[in-house]
Design a protein around this nucleic acid. Structure first.
Lengths: 345, 345
DNA sequence: GGTACATGCTTAATCGTTTAAATAAAATTT
DNA sequence: AAATTTTATTTAAACGATTAAGCATGTACC
């Protein structure tokens, strides 16, 4: 029992496939199809439960109504949620999303890109990973529409939707200072990615603007791949030295999780021994015995806007370049509460 | 600068598209293409960076090399991870996956199914939600290949890959009993889904086989949609009554998370006030001040096997029905440690 | 009554592949 | 040398849709 095609309907109605196509695409008026026939065609289409073949449509039109979404790390709940938003938003507009995670590997990202290009996606939304600049250039050269999400390359002119990471980190730093912490560290990925540099920069400026001298030993940079062990070392160092920190900003969700596990093991008390503010958002932060203060990025808006930008570009390739930085919001919880309160402890 | 097609290559090589197709599909031998020409064609294809058009291929062959993955709830990290496994495994076999989450709504699942059928996916892997039996029947009738994952309907003959939930829950119950708990409750979704019933059944039998009389008030069933508030009520009831529980099994990850948040608020101590074993697996359980014992389902194997079953069926539609129940493993942590140890507290 | 236009429908090309069947040329057999 | 087989290549239909162009009609106008 094959799917019914235009031909089947045409045959049953005794007309050409052209008429059927016109009618079912709502072009009866422009193409002057007889009312009686039009009605008959619609009737038959319904009876036979006609569903157009997307492949054929796409082959003809060159449009697949599919978006490729390449995510740097889908195991990060922030990105997982962004992916959901993108998917929902796309579906609302009649688009299907194909998701791929490159797990922070540029080669994997490259493979994905090619697979999806071959699948004829109409455009891309990309959370770039380190070393994927060439891919961005490639897309630009080939004139394939795309929007960068959450991470972007300031030296490459592209559409992007991202968070103001500098500001977010600055705010986090100021918040800790105002809460009475003065020896504030930051843990970040060892990375040349702009969003990461911005987070470190914001933190440093927060210290500077509050007359706290930044110490090199307060910046802990770890490699993504060997995070598990490096985080432990970093925590050990941050707490053991004579430049011991009393608060720490975690530049990503993954770093925070790893650190918290270790901190648990060490029986270090948050926030009395160590105050914490983390980027990223996740249930985990609510569930920790001492709820974690975090930087809430405008997840929904990021996803929605990225889709919006891309679809606009798909509809009109001449559309101008769109770039937007959205503000994050610092959610203050127990893990960074004012130090005075813990002086008694 | 259009993509190069078979035609372009044919033109440049001065041959017909047929030859090009044969050569590039490795059918030179069967179709006896001249060696010189074959070589020339390959050469040109490489030079022009030929990438076949999947749409055209699919239209012709009726195969899209795409799998539809419908997940009951992608916000559940267990399912999110299963999705990753399925995706990776599919990709290894040259398949692309289109994921959709129905958020436990049968209608949404129905919509997804249709969207994906229209997109001509070759087959489905489905984590069914309540009330979607008709969809399973529909697929069977229309002879669309599919494999049910994690949840199945015992009264419908289908391929499936799932966990032995009865056994898992039974083990969890026995473990708690052996650890000295005797007033053991269970929190589950109010649902007619088989996997949920099995979890309750296993728990009950664990009690029965250890001469503990099951009390109705120990079974807390909450609705998925209104989980947030109902979980609180359930916890209140479980702890306040004269039939107060000293341990609790959570039949899903979501329930556990919600309950733990509330338990935190109430300042209830785990496990001294309440021991806990939960289904599902997530970082959260590691991070809780008292790491949570949980039932680890064979996530990787489930996903891989589902893909394997489906691909076999796609390759050979006559393939027999495949059903498998995999064993879960109880991971014992602090949250359910032997009661004697806490008698002093 | 001839030209012009409106109406209602069909034809056929096209998108990029695959592949059975046809064809032509060369090699082998009778 | 004719018949047959093998080898190398082309032709053309098909997948399922879209759409410009063509072709009959009928109606209106001068």
């Amino acid at each position: 029992m094959k799917k019914t095609s235009l031909k089947d309907i045409a045959q049953k109605a005794g007309v050409s496939t052209a008429l059927v196509s016109y009618v079912l695409n709502g072009k009866e008026k422009e193409t002057r199809v007889g009312e009686a026939i039009a009605h008959k065609i619609k009737q038959i289409a319904k009876e036979m439960n006609y569903q157009p073949n997307h492949l054929a449509k796409s082959l003809r039109s060159g449009k697949t109504h599919t978006i490729g979404l390449i995510i740097a790390d889908i195991s990060n709940p922030f990105f997982a949620n962004v992916a959901r938003v993108v998917e929902d938003e796309a579906k609302k507009n009649g688009y299907t999303v194909i998701i791929g995670s490159c797990d922070e590997h540029a080669e994997k990202s490259w493979d994905l890109l090619n697979v999806l290009i071959n699948r004829q996606v109409d455009g891309f939304i990309i959370v770039s990973c380190e070393g994927s600049e060439n891919q961005v250039h490639y897309l630009k050269e080939r004139n394939i529409p795309f929007v960068l999400l959450d991470r972007h390359f300031p030296e490459i002119q592209t559409d992007f939707v991202a968070t103001n990471n500098y500001k977010a980190s600055y705010d986090a730093g100021v918040h800790l200072i105002k809460s009475g912490y003065s020896r504030i560290g930051i843990m970040a990925y060892k990375s040349k990615m702009y969003h990461m540099e911005e987070r470190v920069r914001g933190y440093k400026h927060a210290l500077r603007d509050n007359n706290i001298e930044f110490l090199d030993s307060w910046l802990k940079e770890v490699h993504f791949e060997t995070m598990d062990s490096e985080v432990r070392t970093a925590i050990d160092e941050a707490l053991a030295s004579d430049q011991q920190v009393d608060a720490m900003i975690f530049a990503t969700y993954g770093l925070a999780i790893n650190a918290l596990k270790y901190i648990n093991e060490l029986r270090i008390k948050v926030p009395s021994d160590l105050a914490i503010v983390s980027f990223g958002q996740a249930e985990v932060f609510d569930l920790y015995y001492c709820p974690i203060s975090y930087v809430r990025q405008p997840l929904e808006m990021l996803g929605k806007t990225a889709v919006e930008f891309l679809l606009k570009k798909l509809k009109n390739p001449e559309e101008g370049m769109k770039q937007i930085l959205m503000e994050a919001k610092l959610i203050v919880r127990e893990s960074s509460k004012a130090k005075t309160a813990t002086l008694s402890g």
